[in-house]
Every structure is written in structure tokens, then in C-alpha cells.
Design a protein around this nucleic acid. Structure first.
Length: 1113
RNA sequence: GGUCCUGUAGCUCAGUUGGUUAUGAGCGUUCCCCUGAUAAGGGAAAGGUCGUUGGUUCAAGCCCAAUCAGGACUACCA
């Protein structure tokens, strides 16, 4: 006989541990995949975390979502393969290692070899693997930890190379020269990650200058029609870039004016061009309301030439003209922007578009550079190409300035107190009648986090992926992805794609995937390597050509994909080893590897291919995920790189469904941080509340894409309310099922089911439908809330509470079996529905009920035949009626133990009437009323006061604008009008013939009765107490007190007793008239009144005490 | 600066193609009940100018615009 486990108390953390052991013993995760062999596949991609940091509570959030859907799909019968992954390259790892070893980037290759450094990275990056593994297990996240993909793995890198070669061949890869943050002091470019270090942006006070550029040529003349000096005013916060000026930029739609004025320093009269909206800002120099001599749009100015402001060097054809740029505003400055394409990203962009060259110098080595060298100073003439100097530089003008640092901070010989280059230039301009205003200005400027010195925006060589070329395709494919929430896909992600820039792949670091491109020194010949096999062939060629003496990877056997053959001891595709390789170009020249590493985001974005070592192995493995989920912060990160690579490589989506979840904040809505000490330790939370409660809380408290305010008390509430109630319900079931020896084989016959059984089974099947739909729509919150509502309200608080008596005592009959069957079915199905999100307790419950694991069970399918919406409506009415009557009792101060004679419910329509009649008995027993009068309102003998109100939804559509008038008229209708309307079925108001569907008529009041109305039904309660009712009330009070006494006296449930009660007039009649009733309820063989009883137990009644003695009979 | 999200009861959140008493839910609070699911359970009550201001509409928590507050991402505006 099946014995159902009974427990003393619920400890979810304990349950997790026990179930986890069970899973490991049974190897259940693998079974959950193996048993689905041959079934349709549901592919999930795991976004790789970095194991060089400890996991946080937000990882529990993200992984709960992932796990829930994978488990759901598994139960639905899909085979859900999911590989764990580790993100192992990149800056955070390197910074960690630098800190650990106490070195800086400059020391690498000097104090420590690249070899040793990378070995340290390799060790360091997996530092917290054990913690991650523990978290994964403890929270019940099922993912294949034994065969993870690791981004530093040679196989992984080989696939990356293959992908890069594909992109190379499709023309997506190019080397470009762009403006990037650069630290001259450190001699290195800075990543945006580095710029986002706290404290990098600081307020600095710089000398700024509004310079005046003299306009030239016919077009300028035509603006005014006379030959007077005309200047365009432009403001800059970096006067040192003025010598590199090659254009001025105006906004096409902005209004510009020419006004007369004089230079405040030289007092020379001139005309000035600036944005009309900026006139006020220059009132000091130009007067409050200067006369406007010309007015026009930015477009009128396009192409106007001007005289070079600081003529040190000639940038070539096309420079010194006014161009258009949409980004120009009139917020500050003059509405005319100084353009130095070599020092500003925007500048470079608009200049390129307008065909304006930048101020480019040629060095002795033949490199193209801006006017400033890599150390942050104007080039010394000696470092420049002789021909260039001869042809394009005005040596006399430039020489005094050569060698000046653009910021004092870069020059070891200068301090803050010394005159800056900015100031020197301003003074010079002033003397030349070229400075219009010079002032100090405070602005926010980034600083190098390592050297503490200001950053320079500087053009650098980088490799790019021309992702803009695939923009349209990416946008089109994005439309086919199901984003949850939708706005992240269409808004945040969609907008990001619209404004896409080319992807800067280059990183000048050491620990990462090397760029597989080898080039000749002159850059004329290059090769992109797409596999180890290809590299081996090239190495052999190179050895033949004499560029290399031996193959460093000679031990590697091409096309042998064994683990050993790819071991780092055999081959290592990292620096410095690949840097040692020199290849031979087609024309026989040596080619060296481009020293860059690639952006780590390429690593993770390539995982659909690289996790399977595609295309070298697993050519058939699917590469599009059915589902992925990560934090919303990954929109521009992993979500993008997956999408971009997949689109460019094979023109299809990398994922079909995606949930982007929000942040996990502390309970006050603040970001969690170790510094503030408000970070929740995931292990502590899991230990304390158990994984299920934490998981359930996370998915049901709010939609996962909204930020979660993590409140431990909320988790505890979930534990108490949901899991506690479910546990209790099971406990109740197990207790009696064991007593009765019931098991599920006994089943039940449909005709034995009572209305309430059918009701709860109907609810259950509705629930199955709802939960399935919610999971399929990737709405875990809806699913979870529906389950907990069912368990708490329908199953426990209504079904079990109302049916307890059916399980107590007595013989096993058909009715009792029906009750067991019903409760068992509910519990078992709930265990399945909850299992994806609460895998531990769901499994415990299912195992207790069936001796099998829930995770290999088949997802329940709703039985439509069991769904009875009328029955559900009836019960809902019963619940409402019960609540209303209890509320009335409260108002009348009649507690539930006091029986009342009668309640009247006039039903507004036949349907409601029938619905109420079905549950009449149930209501009666719930509210302790002897008689229910449920009749059609018109059949009621009681006088009813009715209320009529418009059905706005129906009527509004019909009458539109007349609604207000009609509503007022309806409100004026008298009781007689309503009666007439009901009799005739129509009633004319304001020339409109009302029909039944236009209005709702409800019973508002029944004069002389105590009435409650909730808008749907109205209930009247007879609170008149007859002597008989009062006696019965007292009898019930006595029963209650005697039962308590029985219990506190330690009597067994079945013991018979004798009862003696002190003879008091308050109870005498009740004891006499209800003697039998009382005796039967308290299992008394005799119940007598004794005069003057004193030595018994005192029973506290309503305002008086009664002495009582009970004895075992 | 740009893009996106959020603002409903003390707290966490529902609120269905716009329909008039927000039937709002749970927690918390107050009061009461139950006492054979018991280191549980149930009920009732109080609690809201739906961030603010305009607009569209017969009708707005819901649609539109502006604005404020919080948050995320992104960006060298001279």
C-alpha cells in the first residue's frame, strides 16, 4: 500500500539539499536530455559569465529565467541541450592580474614576459569556478557544466578565426583610422570601459576662445554686397586644436545673422556672422540689439570659403569652407562649430562627408599623424618627412610652436601654473585680430584612470567590422525576433541598430583572441588565416622561404580534433606564440601579425558557432537558439554581438525568443554594491530561504524585465504563503490518505464527484491552460501568480476548508474517494505546473505523490471537458455572497456562531438565479444561516428598491454625444419608471428608446432589511433573533468551550465524556432544549445542569462565567 | 544630450480593444473569528485627488503632448 510521506515542518532549504542529492544520484539532468532523444529540439544559449568575479544575486535572477523555460520545454517533451560557458578573455581579467602581480601594462614584456603574464591570466580567470558551480547547483540551474565552452580554448579561437576569415572574405573587415580616447602619458588607447571607471570624468577649467574666421570669395560678398571684412565666429574649448582647423560647421535649419560690430581687443570694425539665437550671449561685444544686416539659414552658408585662421601648414584641397552638420545646436557657443577632423569624432565625420581633409602631418617614417604626436606635443620639425615640410609647412610660422605640449600635464617640465598652449594661442590670436572673446570655462573632461592625466581624442589605427553594411539586414531580422519585453527589441535594440557604427575590433592588450591577420610592412599584402590547418600550410611556406626556421606548432596534427591535440602544450593560439610566426607573402615578403587582439565581445557573440567548434566539428548542430535570456544591459553587448555575427555570417537570426531582464536592486530601490554593504549574498539567501522561494519570489514579484527590488521579507512571505500553504494542503491530504489507505489506483467515477469537486477540477484545468499559455508567451510572472492564486485561494482556502469533513472519520465510500481523487489530482498537477520555477519542492511534492520525478513527467494538458465556466461563476458568486453576509454580520455584530434565520438574494436574471441555487447549501453552511431565499427579483415578496444605471459601454457606442444627457435622465427615473421599463422592455428618454441591454438594473435596497450590495448581487440578512436562535447560539458557544476543554484535558478524539455545567439562567434554556445537539457534538454521554457548581473549570462566556466539570465516561 | 523603462493604498504589485463606486490583490495596521490542516487557518475594517499639467473624447488610470521624479544604456556638443 502506498504510504504518503508526512513531515513535521517545511524547511525549503533542507528540501533543496535532499532533492539535489537525489538528482545527482539519479544523474537526472542527463536523463532529462537522454530520454528526449529523437524528440524535437529546443535550443538554449547560455551567455557566458566571467569566472574571475564572484556570482551575485542578479545571476540567480537571470539563471532562474533561463532554467524555468528550459525545464518547461523539457517537460513538454523537447530535447533541451544547454552548454555552460565561460567568458575568459578581456580587460577585467587583465586588470585583475595586473593588480595581483602589482604591475602595469607597461611592465608586460619587460618585467614579466607575455608568456608568463598570459599564463597568470589563464589561471586567474577560472578563480571562482567552484563558487559558480556551487551556485549553479544550489539554485537548481540545470546546464551542462561538464562540457562547457571556454573562450580561451584553442578550438574556440579556431572557430573565431574561421568567422573572421568569413567576414574578411565578404569585405566586412577593414583597417581604419578613427578618433579614439588616448592617453599620451600612458601611450595607449583607452577603451570605453576604462573611461567609465568612477572618477574619470572631472570638471576642469580651460581657457576657451571665440575665434573670428574671415570669410572670402564671391559667395561671402554676395551675402552683404560690399567689401567689408566679414568674420564667422566660432567657439572652442580646446584652442590648441585651432591650428588643425579645416572647416566650420553650421546647422542647416538654424537662422544666422550678420551684424556690425568691433573686435573688443583691437577695436577694429567688422561684420560678424553667428546664429541669431546666440546674439544675446554676445551682447557684451555686439550690443543689446545690434542691427541685422543679413539673415539666412545655415544652408545659405554652405560652401562659403574662409581664410585659414592659423596658417602653419596646408592641409590640401577642399579645406576652409563652411559645411553643414545636423548636430549643431544653439545651446552654447555661436552656432558655428570649429572643425578639426583630426581631433574630434563628429568633426571627422562631417568633414569626411563634405570632402574636407583633416590637418594631417607625415612623419619621417611615412606615417600619417595629426599635428600632435603620440606623446601629446606638436611635432618637432625634425620628426617630420622632409618633402612634406618643404611642400606644405610654413616653417617660419610653425617653428616657434613645434614641440609645445597641448596640455601642461603631458610635459614633465611644466606645472599647472605655467602658461598653457591654449593661452599662448589665444594671446597670439588676439594680436592678429583673430580672437573675439577669451574666457575661462569649466567643463567635464575624461581623465586616464591610470595616469590621472587628461585624455586626448586622437586618431588611431584600428581594425573594424563594417557592421553598417549589414545594418538593413540586421534590422529586418530583428523584426522577426520575439523580444520580451517588446520595447527592448523595437526601441532600445532597434534604435541602436538604426544608429549603428562600425564595430571597432582592435584592442591593444595581451590576453585575448589574436587577430589572425598577417601583413607586409608596407601594408600592401596581407593574409587572413581561417584555421589552424591553413596556418600550418602558411608556416611551411614561410619556412621554405627562410622567414622561419621551424614550426612552433609542429606537434599539432592537422584535422585531429582530439582534446589532446588541442591542448596548450601542443598548440597555443594566444600571444606571444602567434606573434613569433612570420608568414611569406605572395610576392615573397615577410608578413607579421597585426598585433591587435579582438574585442572580447566578439568571443561571446560567436558562441553559436564556437561552442561546437563549427565548422570543423559538429557541422549539423543547430546554430539558432530558440531562447536566450540576459540582463537588459546586454542589449548592446551580447544580444548585439550574437545578432551581428549571425546576420553577417549566414543572414539569419541567432535567437528566436529573448527575455531581457532588469536589474536586481536592494529593497529600497538602490543599486546593490559591495561598498554600500547592501549587496545580497546569493549563497546566504539560498541557504536561508531555499532556492525555490528565492526563484519563485524573483519571477512572481514583478515581471522579470522590470527592476526587482529584492526584499528578503518578500521571499519569506512567498515561503509562508505559497509554499507553506501548499505544504499544509499536502500534509492534510497525506495524513488522511494514510489513515484511509487511499491510493490513486482507486480513482473515482465521474458521477461521484460533487459540485465542488467539479468546480475545483474545472479551476485546475483552466489553470493548466493559463499557465501553459503564459510560459509559451514567455510570461513567467503570469504563470507563477496564477499557480499561487489557485493554491492559496481555490485549493486551500476554499476547497480544502469546505471539504475537511469529508476526509474525517467514517468509512471509505464513493464520496470520500471522490474527495481524495480530486485533492490528489490538484496537488499532482500543481507539482508539475510549478516544477519549472520551483524545481526542488515541485519534485518533492510529485515524488511524495507518485514516487516518480516531476522533471521527466509529461506536461499536463488541459481537459476542456472538465472546464465548466458556469460552475466557476456559481462558486465565484458563492464566495461573494459569503463575504457579503460575513460583512453584514460584522456590521450587525452577530458573530458566525450565532445562527441567523434567513438571507434573501434577489437574482437580477435567470442565469444568476440558477448559478446561486447550485451553491445555496454551501453558502448556508459557510455563514450559518438557516434559510436562503434565492428568487428572481420580480418574484420577491419583499419590497425592493431598484437602481438603474446606464451600461456605458453599450449605450455609449449607440448614442455617442447624447450620453451625458441620457445618463442624467436615466438617473432621474423613478421606481415606477423602472417598473414600467421592466414591464414593457423599453422606455423612451430624450427621444431615445432604451432597451434592456442599454442599462443595468440592480436591487439597491430592501427597506427594513440589513442590505449589502456589491454591484452584481444584493443580499438582505434577517438579523432578528428568536429565542430558539439565541438558544442555539448559546449551545454553540458551549460546544466550543467544552471542545477546548476536552483538548486541553488531553482527551483522545474518540473519548466519551460526561459533562456537568453550573446551572445559570443564561444557559439553562439552551442546555435543556439543545441537550442532545450539544452532547452529540462533544461526545457526551450525559450533559447535566448542577446548581451551585463551583469546583470546576471556568468557561468564559459572553459577559459571564460558567463552571464546568468534564470526566471521561 | 540621445534612446528606452518605471511612477496606482504605508510596502510589493494587478488593472484586460478607453465605459463612470478604482468589486483592485497580497503584505503591513486595527478589530474579530476559528482552535481535530494547529510552531497552522479564516473574516471584517481603515487606507487612493491612479507623479503633475494640459489635450483628444459623450467618457481617460488606460490614448496624445508637455513636465517632474527614479532607473538603465549610450555619447569627446563646439
Amino acid at each position: 500500500m502506498k504510504h504518503f510521506n508526512e513531515y513535521k515542518q517545511l524547511n525549503l532549504a533542507e528540501v533543496s539539499k535532499e532533492i539535489l542529492e537525489q538528482w545527482e544520484k539519479e544523474d537526472l539532468f542527463h536523463k532529462s536530455i537522454e530520454t528526449r532523444e529523437g524528440n524535437p529540439s529546443f535550443l538554449f544559449f547560455e551567455g557566458p559569465p566571467s569566472a574571475n568575479g564572484m556570482p551575485g544575486i542578479h545571476h540567480v535572477m537571470a539563471r532562474t529565467i533561463k532554467d524555468t523555460f528550459c525545464r518547461f520545454k523539457t517537460m513538454q517533451g523537447y530535447q533541451v541541450k544547454r552548454k555552460a560557458g565561460w567568458d575568459t578573455h578581456g580587460l577585467p581579467v587583465e586588470l585583475g592580474v595586473e593588480k595581483l602581480l602589482g604591475i602595469t601594462k607597461e611592465d608586460i614584456g619587460k618585467k614579466i614576459s607575455v608568456d608568463e603574464y598570459n599564463a597568470a591570466c589563464r589561471r586567474e580567470v577560472m578563480k571562482y569556478t567552484q563558487e559558480w558551480t556551487n551556485l549553479t547547483k544550489q539554485m537548481g540551474y540545470w546546464v551542462d557544466l561538464e562540457n562547457p565552452y571556454i573562450t580561451y580554448d584553442n578550438k574556440f579561437i579556431e572557430t573565431l578565426w574561421w568567422l573572421l576569415k568569413q567576414l574578411y572574405q565578404k569585405g566586412y573587415l577593414y583597417k581604419g583610422y578613427t578618433i579614439q580616447p588616448y592617453s599620451p602619458a600612458a601611450g595607449t588607447g583607452l577603451s570605453s570601459h576604462e573611461l567609465n571607471q568612477p572618477g574619470c570624468y572631472r570638471d576642469v577649467k580651460d581657457t576657451t576662445c571665440t575665434a573670428q574666421f574671415r570669410l572670402l570669395g564671391d559667395k561671402a560678398m554676395r551675402l552683404l554686397g560690399e567689401e567689408t571684412p566679414l568674420y564667422a565666429l566660432a567657439w572652442t574649448t580646446t584652442p590648441w586644436t585651432l591650428p588643425s582647423n579645416t572647416a566650420l560647421c553650421v546647422g542647416p535649419k538654424i537662422d544666422y545673422v550678420i551684424v556690425k560690430g568691433e573686435n573688443p581687443y583691437t577695436k577694429i570694425e567688422a561684420y560678424y556672422l553667428l546664429a541669431e539665437a546666440r546674439l544675446a550671449a554676445y551682447a557684451k561685444e555686439l550690443g543689446e540689439e545690434p542691427e541685422v544686416l543679413w539673415r539666412g539659414k545655415g544652408t545659405d552658408l554652405e560652401g562659403v570659403q574662409y581664410e585659414q585662421l592659423i596658417p602653419w601648414a596646408n592641409p590640401g584641397e577642399g579645406a576652409f569652407k563652411i559645411i553643414l552638420g545636423d548636430y549643431v545646436t544653439t545651446e552654447d557657443g555661436t552656432g558655428i562649430v570649429h572643425i578639426a577632423p583630426t581631433f574630434g569624432a563628429d568633426d571627422a565625420f562631417v568633414a569626411k562627408k563634405a570632402g574636407v581633409p583633416g590637418m594631417v602631418f607625415i612623419t619621417k617614417k611615412g606615417e600619417q599623424r595629426p599635428m600632435v604626436d603620440m606623446t601629446g606635443k606638436f611635432f618637432n620639425i625634425a620628426d617630420l618627412d622632409e618633402d612634406f615640410v618643404k611642400n606644405q609647412v610654413d616653417v617660419a610660422a610653425y617653428e616657434p610652436w613645434a614641440g609645445r605640449y597641448v596640455k601642461n600635464a603631458y610635459d614633465a617640465n611644466l606645472t599647472d601654473k605655467d602658461e598653457t598652449l591654449d593661452v599662448s594661442i589665444c594671446i597670439w590670436l588676439k594680436g592678429e585680430n583673430k580672437a573675439f572673446r577669451i574666457e575661462k570655462h569649466v567643463h567635464n573632461y575624461p581623465h586616464c584612470w591610470r595616469t590621472d592625466k587628461p585624455v586626448l581624442y586622437y586618431p588611431l589605427d584600428s581594425w573594424f567590422i563594417r557592421s553598417t553594411q549589414a545594418r538593413e539586414e540586421m534590422m529586418a531580422l530583428n523584426d522577426t525576433i520575439n523580444w520580451q519585453p517588446e520595447s527592448t527589441g523595437t526601441g532600445r535594440f532597434g534604435k541602436w541598430l538604426e544608429n549603428l557604427n562600425d564595430w571597432n575590433l582592435s584592442r591593444s592588450r595581451y590576453w585575448g583572441t589574436p587577430l589572425p591577420i598577417w601583413r607586409t610592412e608596407d601594408g600592401q599584402e596581407e593574409i587572413c588565416i581561417g584555421s589552424i590547418a591553413e596556418l600550418m600550410v602558411e608556416i611551411e611556406k614561410s619556412i621554405k622561404a627562410g622567414f622561419m626556421t621551424e614550426n612552433p606548432f609542429a606537434k599539432h596534427v592537422v584535422c585531429d580534433y582530439s582534446k589532446e591535440n588541442y591542448d596548450p602544450s601542443v598548440i597555443d593560439l594566444h600571444r606571444p606564440y602567434v606573434d613569433y610566426i612570420v608568414l611569406c607573402s605572395p610576392s615573397g615578403k615577410p608578413m607579421k601579425r597585426e598585433l591587435d587582439l579582438i574585442d572580447v565581445w566578439f568571443d561571446s557573440g560567436a558562441m553559436p558557432y564556437a561552442q561546437n567548434h563549427y565548422p570543423f566539428e559538429n557541422q549539423d548542430a543547430p546554430r539558432t537558439a530558440d531562447f536566450i535570456s540576459e540582463g537588459v544591459d546586454q542589449t548592446r553587448g551580447w544580444f548585439f554581438t550574437l545578432h551581428a555575427i549571425h546576420t553577417m555570417i549566414e543572414g539569419s537570426v541567432a535567437y528566436k525568443n529573448v527575455i531581457s531582464n532588469g536589474l536586481v536592486l536592494d529593497k529600497n530601490g538602490n543599486k546593490m554594491s559591495k561598498r554600500l554593504g547592501n549587496a545580497v549574498d546569493p549563497f546566504g539567501a539560498l541557504d536561508k530561504y531555499g532556492a525555490d522561494a528565492v526563484r519563485w519570489y524573483m519571477l512572481t514579484n514583478s515581471s522579470p524585465w522590470e527592476n526587482l527590488k529584492f526584499d528578503p521579507e518578500g521571499v519569506d512571505e512567498i515561503r509562508r504563503k505559497f509554499f507553506g500553504t501548499l505544504y499544509n494542503t499536502y500534509g492534510f491530504f497525506a495524513l488522511y490518505a494514510n489513515v484511509d489507505g487511499w491510493n490513486q489506483e482507486q480513482g473515482t467515477k465521474n458521477q461521484d464527484l460533487q459540485e465542488i469537486d467539479k468546480w475545483v477540477l474545472s479551476k485546475l484545468n483552466s489553470l493548466v491552460k493559463e499557465v501553459t499559455a503564459a510560459y509559451e508567451a514567455y510570461e513567467p510572472t503570469k504563470a507563477g501568480r496564477a499557480i499561487s492564486d489557485f493554491v492559496q485561494d481555490d485549493l486551500s482556502n476554499w476547497y480544502v476548508r469546505l471539504n475537511r469533513k469529508r476526509f474525517w472519520g467514517g468509512e471509505m465510500d464513493a464520496d470520500k474517494q471522490a474527495a481524495y481523487y480530486t485533492l490528489y489530482t490538484c496537488l499532482k498537477t500543481v507539482a508539475q505546473l510549478m516544477a519549472p520555477n520551483a524545481p526542488f519542492y515541485g519534485d518533492r511534492l510529485y515524488r511524495d505523490l507518485t514516487d516518480e520525478t516531476v522533471h521527466l513527467s509529461t506536461w499536463p494538458v488541459a481537459d476542456e471537458a472538465m472546464i465548466n465556466l458556469e460552475l466557476e461563476r456559481s462558486m465565484s458568486l458563492a464566495q461573494q455572497a459569503t463575504s457579503m453576509i460575513l460583512s453584514l454580520r460584522k456590521r450587525a455584530e452577530k458573530n458566525v456562531r450565532q445562527p441567523l434565520q434567513k438571507a434573501v438574494i434577489p437574482a437580477p436574471d435567470q442565469e444568476t438565479l440558477e448559478a446561486l441555487l447550485r451553491v445555496e447549501d454551501l453558502i448556508k453552511s459557510e455563514v450559518n444561516v438557516k434559510e436562503m431565499v434565492i428568487v428572481r427579483a420580480e418574484d420577491s415578496e419583499i419590497k425592493l428598491v431598484k437602481k438603474i444605471k446606464p451600461n456605458f459601454k453599450v449605450l455609449g457606442k449607440k448614442v455617442g454625444g447624447m450620453m451625458k444627457q441620457l445618463a442624467a435622465a436615466i438617473a432621474q427615473m423613478s421606481q415606477e419608471d423602472i417598473a414600467a421599463f421592466e414591464a414593457a422592455g423599453t422606455f423612451t428618454l430624450c427621444d431615445y428608446a432604451l432597451v434592456a441591454e442599454d442599462v443595468d438594473i440592480i436591487t439597491e435596497d430592501m427597506p427594513g432589511w440589513l442590505v449589502a450590495n456589491n454591484g452584481v448581487i444584493t443580499i438582505a440578512l434577517d438579523i432578528e433573533l428568536t429565542p430558539a436562535l439565541i438558544e442555539e447560539g448559546i449551545a454553540r458557544e458551549l460546544i466550543n468551550r467544552i471542545q477546548n476543554l476536552r483538548k486541553s484535558s488531553g482527551l483522545e478524539i474518540t473519548d466519551r465524556i460526561t459533562v456537568q455545567l453550573e446551572n445559570r439562567e443564561e444557559i439553562a434554556a439552551a442546555v435543556k432544549n439543545c441537550n442532545e445537539y450539544i452532547a452529540s457534538q462533544v461526545l457526551a454521554t450525559s450533559l447535566v445542569l448542577v446548581d451551585g457548581l463551583v469546583n470546576g473549570t471556568i468557561l468564559e462566556m459572553d459577559g459571564y462565567n460558567v463552571n464546568c466539570i468534564i470526566e471521561k465516561a
